[in-house]
Every structure is written in structure tokens, then in C-alpha cells.
Design a protein around this nucleic acid. Structure first.
Length: 108
DNA sequence: GATATGACTGTTT
DNA sequence: GAAACAGCCATAT
């Protein structure tokens, strides 16, 4: 039932190391959630014990109502955000064993 | 059971 | 870069 999925989502979020961030889509994909909405819903309802500050939207911007606090918390972890946007290219969490590929322009 | 809502994403215009 | 549209799932009323 979704209880297991609920736990799985929490587990993946808790597995995100400090100093890094992940998108809702990432959490959804890694936890097996059918849609990122589930991730947001879990956090909204039962994410008080999780590092929700490390979960950002696809474009690197945090949730609108928590943006201020979220950015402040991330700042304390070493994740510096430019105004309201975080450099996913640099801080985005990658599961172990996955190598990164640079873009065609040799972009970082 | 239908409608509306929400810590979302991706494509298209 | 912004706005519109469609998909996606669980709750609340």
C-alpha cells in the first residue's frame, strides 16, 4: 500500500547527504513514487522530521512558502544560493556509482 | 462519486 | 524567460 511508498520516500530523502540537494523528481524516481506530487505531499504531511530543506524544485528554487527558511538552512550546510536559486549543477545530489558527464560545450 | 487543492514536472507557444 | 496546458497521485469536502 502507499504506506510502504511513504516510508520509501522518507528513506530516500533521509539518504540525501548534508551539503547537497535533490529535486522532487529525483526523490520520486529514486523512491519509486509515481509522481513528484507524492514527494511534496509526504513532506507537507510528514516531513517535519526530514531534511526537507535539501529538497528543491526542478529549476533549483525551493518551495514558495518555505523558500526563506530553506535557503537559510542550506546556507548553514554550505549550500550557497544565488538569491532564490541554487546551483543544481553543483549541489545536486547524485546516487553513488553514477558518474557525471560534462556538456557538449565542456561546461564544467 | 465528483470537484478542488497541493512542498511538482515537462513540453510547447 | 514567462505563461499555458496536460499528466500525475492522495486528501478533503
Amino acid at each position: 500500500m502507499d504506506d510502504e511508498l511513504h516510508e520509501r520516500i522518507r528513506s530516500v530523502i533521509a539518504d540525501v547527504p548534508a551539503g547537497t540537494v535533490a529535486t522532487y523528481g529525483d526523490i520520486a524516481a529514486l523512491s519509486g513514487a509515481p509522481s513528484p506530487r507524492l514527494v511534496g505531499r509526504v513532506l507537507a504531511e510528514d516531513g517535519h522530521d526530514l531534511p526537507w530543506q535539501r529538497i528543491l524544485r526542478a529549476n533549483g528554487t525551493p518551495a514558495p512558502h518555505l523558500a526563506h527558511e530553506q535557503l537559510e538552512r542550506l546556507r548553514g550546510e554550505g549550500v550557497l544560493a544565488d538569491g532564490q536559486r541554487v546551483d543544481l549543477r553543483k549541489y545536486r545530489w547524485r546516487p553513488d556509482g553514477v558518474a557525471e558527464e560534462d556538456g557538449p560545450d565542456g561546461l564544467f
